[in-house]
Amino acid sequence: MAYRQTPAIEAKLQDNKTRILKAARALVSEGGWQEAQIANVATTAGIATGTVYRYFPSKAELFADVLSRVSQREVDVLTDIAASDASTQERIHSMVTTFVIRAMRNPRLAYALIAEPCDKAIDEVRLQYRAAISEVIRGVIEAGQTDKRFRNDVRADIAATVIVGGFMEGLIGPLSPLANTAQMNEADQRVEIETLANQIAALACSSIAAKAG
């Protein structure tokens, strides 16, 4: 008879995996991909190094899973905005500002997700993440072209790719571990982030806005 895991064992296995992923994310948030060595992940999770390898045969697979899970949450947030009743222009503006503000809440993690040099396996997930965000934005741009708010002389998929590339590139400097926003007090930091978010969003919207008249 085939062996079947008991509910208790299945729960323990799932708990171990959750602890590993939480530990890896915490370490990436503190010091980027280089900080999240398998031995560090195991120590932070309170388990043996060999146990980590039982769930993730390589560091690259662990990192790819962390990136995939965090990225999917951001895609889900933008998808909710895209499905709102706001105008198409308001939705694009809100999607960009929301992404920027959320990224700046945890700049070290966002820098790792967007720009930090990484293994090929991680970079492949990163590209999938960008493509998923571009697809959500493409849908709103197409709707805006239909309602005449957005220009029709550019392809929606190209416009979406340019917008995503633009706001991610615009974030690299502020997200960099060398940025000085962390030295500001909380109130000034909030104003700086909101200004950054609105400026990037305004540029994104103006690039696709229909010409008056």
Score class of each variant (00 low, 15 high):
residue 66 V to S: 02
residue 80 D to N: 02
residue 9 I to D: 01
residue 15 D to V: 00
residue 31 G to V: 08
residue 118 C to A: 15
residue 112 A to K: 05
residue 155 R to L: 06
residue 103 A to S: 15
residue 89 Q to Y: 00
residue 54 R to Y: 10
residue 99 F to Q: 09
residue 194 E to A: 09
residue 192 E to D: 12
residue 22 K to V: 04
residue 125 V to D: 03
residue 192 E to Y: 14
residue 189 Q to A: 14
residue 154 V to G: 01
residue 171 L to P: 02
residue 54 R to L: 13
residue 10 E to F: 00
residue 198 N to D: 15
residue 36 A to Y: 03
residue 160 A to L: 03
residue 4 R to K: 12
residue 137 I to E: 06
residue 24 A to H: 02
residue 156 A to G: 04
residue 63 F to A: 11
residue 96 V to L: 09
residue 91 R to A: 03
residue 143 A to V: 09
residue 27 L to P: 04
residue 166 G to I: 00
residue 25 R to Q: 14
residue 160 A to Y: 01
residue 210 A to Q: 13
residue 14 Q to F: 01
residue 145 Q to K: 13
residue 105 R to S: 14
residue 109 L to G: 05
residue 31 G to A: 08
residue 64 A to T: 05
residue 76 D to G: 00
residue 181 T to N: 14
residue 120 K to C: 04
residue 119 D to R: 08
residue 9 I to M: 10
residue 70 V to F: 03
residue 45 A to E: 08
residue 40 N to T: 05
residue 193 I to Q: 12
residue 189 Q to N: 15
residue 153 D to V: 04
residue 66 V to L: 03
residue 128 Q to W: 01
residue 204 A to K: 05
residue 6 T to Q: 09
residue 64 A to M: 07
residue 156 A to D: 02
residue 53 Y to W: 10
residue 17 K to T: 08
residue 58 S to C: 02
residue 113 L to G: 01
residue 180 N to S: 14
residue 134 S to H: 03
residue 213 G to D: 12
residue 3 Y to I: 10
residue 192 E to P: 00
residue 10 E to D: 06
residue 67 L to E: 02
residue 199 Q to W: 12
residue 122 I to C: 14
residue 192 E to N: 12
residue 171 L to I: 06
residue 156 A to I: 02
residue 68 S to F: 02
residue 181 T to S: 14
residue 2 A to Q: 05
residue 107 P to T: 08
residue 23 A to P: 07
residue 157 D to T: 06
residue 34 Q to V: 07
residue 116 E to G: 10
residue 193 I to E: 11
residue 23 A to K: 04
residue 144 G to K: 12
residue 94 S to M: 07
residue 78 L to N: 08
residue 22 K to R: 13
residue 189 Q to R: 15
residue 28 V to S: 02
residue 151 R to E: 07
residue 82 A to F: 02
residue 199 Q to L: 13
residue 98 T to F: 09
residue 48 A to G: 13
residue 153 D to A: 04
residue 151 R to Y: 07
residue 148 K to Y: 08
residue 128 Q to D: 14
residue 165 G to E: 07
residue 88 T to C: 06
residue 187 A to E: 15
residue 165 G to H: 04
